[in-house]
Nucleic acid binder design. Sequence first.
DNA 1: TATGAATGAGTGTTCATTCAT
DNA 2: TATGAATGAACACTCATTCAT
Lengths: 226, 226, 226, 226
Amino acid sequence: MTSGQKGRDIPRTVEPRTAKAPKRDAERTKKEILAAAMTEFAEYGDTGARIDRIAERAGSNKAMIYSYFGNKEELYAVVLREAYLQIREGERKLDLAKLDPKSAIVELLRFTAYHFRDNPWFLRLLNTENQRRGQTIRQLDGLAELNSPLVEFLREILLRGEKSGVFRKGVDPVEIYLSIASLFYFPLSNTYTLSIVFDPDIGSDAWLEKRIRQAEDMILKYLIAD
Amino acid sequence: MTSGQKGRDIPRTVEPRTAKAPKRDAERTKKEILAAAMTEFAEYGDTGARIDRIAERAGSNKAMIYSYFGNKEELYAVVLREAYLQIREGERKLDLAKLDPKSAIVELLRFTAYHFRDNPWFLRLLNTENQRRGQTIRQLDGLAELNSPLVEFLREILLRGEKSGVFRKGVDPVEIYLSIASLFYFPLSNTYTLSIVFDPDIGSDAWLEKRIRQAEDMILKYLIAD
Amino acid sequence: MTSGQKGRDIPRTVEPRTAKAPKRDAERTKKEILAAAMTEFAEYGDTGARIDRIAERAGSNKAMIYSYFGNKEELYAVVLREAYLQIREGERKLDLAKLDPKSAIVELLRFTAYHFRDNPWFLRLLNTENQRRGQTIRQLDGLAELNSPLVEFLREILLRGEKSGVFRKGVDPVEIYLSIASLFYFPLSNTYTLSIVFDPDIGSDAWLEKRIRQAEDMILKYLIAD
Amino acid sequence: MTSGQKGRDIPRTVEPRTAKAPKRDAERTKKEILAAAMTEFAEYGDTGARIDRIAERAGSNKAMIYSYFGNKEELYAVVLREAYLQIREGERKLDLAKLDPKSAIVELLRFTAYHFRDNPWFLRLLNTENQRRGQTIRQLDGLAELNSPLVEFLREILLRGEKSGVFRKGVDPVEIYLSIASLFYFPLSNTYTLSIVFDPDIGSDAWLEKRIRQAEDMILKYLIAD
DNA sequence: TATGAATGAGTGTTCATTCAT
DNA sequence: TATGAATGAACACTCATTCAT
């Protein structure tokens, strides 16, 4: 049962080996394997991913994978952690601190929407890990720390909003982040089924823009003080 | 790489064979296999599901599966269609036509929330099919027809609301259904990762009740005419 | 590093499938696999034995082996137990109870000598298990019981000898069995090295007959009362 | 299927590298590899031995092994020859020429017993080579020459015994050596199985002492002229 | 001389699928 | 219709051996 297909949507993180570069470069090989593994796991899920294919994608061979990562399970764990690293790094770069609260929320919402659309491999990796019932994420260290900056950042925005009288009181930052993420995760993670079942437009660029405006509307109406 | 675990969350649809029942009952065997397959695919996903286990769960044997369903792929297709059948049937039974628009929306929202929580296998099946990039759902016939009643029903509610001046104009029923589903799908489908990353409470009964109230608030604020 | 070679010295225990016999016969297949495994483990040792070859030798396939025996380790354990079963069964059939003590000892000695020569696979299996530091035999149940009849039998012979004044007092049956086995185990298990290092004759039929007479002489001189 | 275990019973033959010693010392590296290989082959047998582990044990690397020894097979051959060298050297040092025949035999017997017990790696190497059906020893040159001094020495003792009337006539030195070696090889090489099957004491210090006395008794009774 | 990286042919094990009864 | 036996193509993982530096 072959699940995924081609799909090459993970951002290249390794430059092609130049003529000058040495043929035996452990660091580089390791990175190439990791990049290949991210693609493979996102495309096929945990049980569907193939070590053979990862080796081929990485232009390396199976033995190297085992030498560098131990086994499939451990490789998957590294991939999962790397996924969170990359996402949070993206959010960090937003630097919304200088915007007023309303704009900051809107900006985060738009970022999230496009981030989900542009990095479907991340959604698929989340799906995979939840299909596995969190077997691996449970064992990763420092994930809470990795994710807390986002929450703290949101908390600060909400507080500023409260103080300036724009936002109502008592809204939890996690709650708001969940709402924002929810509104895009569902349609963007389930585009294949939803577009068949409800509307073929779902997932298109035009649809997304419209959806973003509706979500903005919804979130802000919820947040604004009466 | 073993993904899923025990988990027995698909509602029994086949009664246990009674003493009276004949040993050779084609129809019954088929149903038992299908029920077993639903559980298996929901628990392990497409690549993780095992024909052996399905046969065992069904109290039957592998050859029967092939005889009745062709192969794993086709069995999966039947499982997927069955999943949609069961869900829509649940919604149909709600019979919200007699409620006023606001109550109807609230009721649908609550139903959706609890339905997702009580039928995680459905979420997992959706995940699986989207991981497969809709490979199978694309080929199922009559799915749009199967799902349209829900949309028509919602459209009617929104219209009633508009007419009575409670709801604002121009809200699309699919849009609203997506919003409602989104708000619960994300946290309930990703409970494992979210509870590790953000808050261990996510997914608990108390959390869900709170979440439902927030979602009601959000959806109604969005729908209500100013 | 390929150790063993051809060598087909385990006694056939399974008749060739006749035209009449059914093609699907679990019991028979299992026996054939076991017979093949005995040969393979004896020839190549534990790490050298190949599941592929066992399957081929058995005229079956690898999946059957796993279906019937679990894995290589468990298959090896069954082989080891079987080896002891066959040996002790051979000794049991000797039925030396009717001979006088001296003749009984001589007979046992001759049997042991020829048994070792005719069943080199047994010696090799012992070697293998001791190379493994008894990893498996330690876990086999009922081995002591399996072997005790031989000891009891010897004890009875020695007692009879004592009473009739032929044998001296206080000789332990295990001690005597060890001596007899030792005298043939070493040269017959190490024929390859010994014949290179000391004398190419070692292991030949003529050599064995001479050796048996020397061993008889040695054992009896040791046993006889002065 | 992992056979051996820890076990560090080969006598150190290489001194630890001192600060003064150069980092690049071909002769030394070669010796260290050989020592490591002896341990490894004795512990795991031919097929179980791992080039990786040998390199690690030697504090060197795999390429060195191939550079110095060609391949695993050839390395094994060197190990095997070395084993015989060390053993015969031990016997040579005994210098029993000054003892009377009876004492000399007893001394050789005791030496053999303790030598086998103290150098189980040698027994294991013999086992291994015989499991391989002498594949390698057959190709080693000069082994007969290496081993003949022992035989000649024994022959001389027996002759002296004959002439002084203590020993009977016509006893072959190889025959006697085989007997002595046999009586200890079997129980000491098969301690693991024998202690499970017959008596847990087998192999203990007390047991060995008792066994030595029995063996002395047996050998001398056999040798002594009536 | 020395080292760590790289590779390809295995090797044990699993699994979807088919066959004989 | 029903069942357990049989099979071959994977698949994760290992290991002897070679290469680049």
